[in-house]
Structure formats: C-alpha cells, structure tokens
Nucleic acid binder design. Structure first.
Lengths: 180, 180
DNA sequence: AAGAATACGGAACGTCGGTTCCGGTTGTCA
DNA sequence: TGACAACCGGAACCGACGTTCCGTATTCTT
C-alpha cells in the first residue's frame, strides 16, 4: 500500500485521491480508512521519506572524512529528489510549515545535517558563514532547478559544481551580495 | 487594470478570478472580456514582467564592466523575484513550457542574458563551463530558496554569496559532481 | 457452518473555482 | 431627447476534487 502511495507522491501533491486509489488498486474509501485526510496521507509519505533520509544522514555523522561525506550526501539528496518530486515539496514544507506532522521529522533532519555540516566546517571543507537553514533552503532550490533540465545529466553536473564550489570556503572576500 | 493584475500575480498563480476581479474593482465578466482564460491573463502578466526584465538586461548588454553588471543583475533579479512571487513561476514556466505565449519572451530573455553572460565570461568574472540554460535554472532555484527564509536579509545575503562564489571561475579543479 | 463484525469499493454529496450569460447602465448619435 | 450599442457586474452553470456513506464481500468466532 505504501508502495502505491509513493507512486502517488512522484506526481506531486496535486494528484487526486481517485488517482492514488487507482494506482494502489483500491477504492478511495480504503484510503480514508487509513488516513483521515489527504493532507495526512501526504504528510505520512513525506515523513517516511524524510525519515529514511535522516537515517542515511545519521549514518554519515561519524564518517572519517566529513567533507567528502557531506558533498556526497548533497549529491545523493539532489539526485534522489530529482526523481521523487515529492521530496522537494517535503523539503520546502519542512522549511515553511512547522505546524503539521512533518515538524518533528524536520527537527531530526535539521539536527543530523547540522552535525555533519559542523564537522565538515571544522575540516575546512565548507565555508563557515552559512547556517543549516540556509543550506537546506539552498538545497531545496537546487532541487527545483534540477527539475528544469530533466534529461541532460551533464548540465546537472555543471549546476551541482556551481553549488559545491560556492559552498567551499572562499579563498578571499570577493563580493558582497548585500543591498538595501 | 494591469496594475491590479500585478497585485494578483503577487499571490502566485493560484488566486481565484473572483479575487483578481475584486482587487481590480471590476466583475469577473470584465476580466473575461479582456482575456479569454485565466491562463491567458497569467501569461499576459508574466510576459509583461519578463519583457521589462529583458529591457533591463539589454541595457546592461554593453556595460563597461560586464562582470560587475552581471552580478548586479543577478542580485536585482533575485531581490525582485523574492517580492513578486509570480516571477518565479514565470522563470520556471520559461524553462518548462515552450508552447504558450511566454515562449517568445523567453527567447528574448535567453538571448539578452546570454550576451551579458558571454561577455562576463570573457573578462573572467564567471566560470566558462556553464550554459545559459543552467544559469537561468540555477537562478530560478535560488529564487525559490529565497522564498523560504522570508525575513532574514542577512541569511539571504549569505545564500547569494554561495551562488556568486560558485559562479566564479574555480581556482582549481576540486570536486566532481558526476555520478552514475 | 452460521452469524457477526470488520473491511472494502465506489457511488453520492458539498464545495470551490473557472467560465458563461443575462439584465442593467452609460455613452453616443441622430 | 430618445433609441441604439457597447460595456459592465455578478448571478448562474459546470466540472473537478476532497470527503462521506452505504451495500456487499470477507474473515473470524463459536
């Protein structure tokens, strides 16, 4: 059942309950017997994904090379989120809506990524003027950017290179983006 | 009338026609007398914005310092797109849907940005391994990322710094983002 | 094996938003 | 000044979608 639900999530949060039910081979009534509302179903699927992601990140927490592990993680996250479009919405919701059930999982992800992020900073692999929130937001943005150029793998690699290079410690203060 | 339409666009493409009409101080019927469909209205607004943006970019085409002009432009675009949420959808549509009326304006924007981009490359202000499509997609992603951290101007500046530093020519080949 | 309780599928309902259409109004021309 | 025409506002229509409900199937119990 969850398997069919994942299939739903790939289409984004706009698919109708009928379609989800159809994909799962059940009636809509069955869906509502397991989840009180569509929102709840979406949250469940999203939380599940985020939870898996958390496990992965927590595994990397004590990696011997935090920098490499960090960039590897980013690469994988973006790669995965590009396929599963719902993960993007997941991340975006994680940043926006602290009320619903995603909130707790978001905390976990935040903490796990934060830990790895901090270690990577210590080794000088990433710049130290960036917060976890900003990192996650950037990551989210990158994912949506990736969804634009569906096919071209090379283009994606170039875009990732931009982000990665930007995350490294700047060799020298070169530009200020401040305004107002 | 257009003025009121812009007000609509700020709320994203999901606002109802009734709300738009209300904001414009007219009835829905009037809206439909000027635009055959909601989609058309949206396209009109978006095209208008993109058109203005094109004018701006084309002005910068022959700037004495293409690099500075380029980064200044990015800064302004992101800043503006953060306020006007519809511009994000505009950029995203520009990348995705070549069928509707936005297509032509997208060509113009593509060409104008491409020209400035090329000149900035020549002066060594930006890396030369990136295409215009990738740049625009990245820009779009950055905008959506910005919309996450609504308030904090400092956070936005840090995120922009990441993007900007990533766009500069890498000092040395340091990391490969390829996979698969 | 029979009855009850639970689960199931899908038809039915209410709401919401895009689109259409009709009655009123304003401006124009003779 | 009176009739005609264009325009306007908003009520009415229609389809889509989330949600609910009921008749039926299935399984568990004794």
């Amino acid at each position: 059942m969850r398997a069919a639900d994942e299939a739903f999530a790939s289409g984004g949060p706009t698919v109708s309950m009928d379609e989800i039910a159809g994909a799962a081979g059940v009636g809509v009534g069955t869906l509502y017997r397991h989840f009180p509302t569509k929102e709840a179903l979406f949250v469940a699927v999203v939380s599940h994904h985020l939870s898996l992601l958390c496990d992965e990140v927590e595994t990397l927490r004590d990696a011997s090379d935090p920098g490499a592990a960090f960039y590897d993680l980013l690469d994988r996250m973006v790669q995965e989120a590009t396929d599963k479009r719902d993960l993007i919405d997941a991340l975006s919701r994680a940043g926006i809506d602290p009320s619903d059930g995603v909130g707790e999982v978001k905390e976990r992800l935040h903490a796990a990524v934060g830990a790895l992020f901090a270690r990577a900073k210590q080794t000088g692999a990433v710049r130290d003027d960036l917060g976890v929130d900003e990192l996650l937001s950037l990551l989210m943005g990158t994912c949506t950017a990736m969804c634009q150029v569906d096919a071209d793998q090379a283009a994606r690699a170039r875009m990732m290179a931009v982000i990665f290079d930007g995350l490294r410690p700047p060799t020298a203060p070169r530009h200020s983006a401040s305004r107002r």
